[in-house]
Amino acid sequence: MGQPLRKAEPETQSYSDRIRELVESDMVGGARLLLAEALEKGDHDEDLSGWESVLTETKGRPNPDVECDFDRTPEFRWITEHSEAYRGQWVALVGSELLAHSASLQDVFSSLERNKPKRRPMLHYID
């Protein structure tokens, strides 16, 4: 009868570190399998909720309560024609109307809060 050459080494790395290694090695499937094993066994004191959150398969749903968007060709044309003057800035556009611009996205949002546009604005960073 054959004998193992050596005993299997006990795993010293935490589940979290092993999952991270798998993700960084482009082995997301393996990371999911290891996470499932860890959650099933449960004999560890690690908080794996962060990995559970990011590795869980997504389920989406159609949302009929959200208004449809519209053709953004005028916005795109505006960006093409005016990009030089707004490099390094966020612009908020509805059609060919510039609603706000700033290097700070927060400032653009604040401006849109003060002057709520009638239609959904398109935000774009011109680099």
Partner: peptide
Amino acid sequence: LADDGVPFD
């Protein structure tokens, strides 16, 4: 966002 149909969340 949808131009036609229903948006998807």
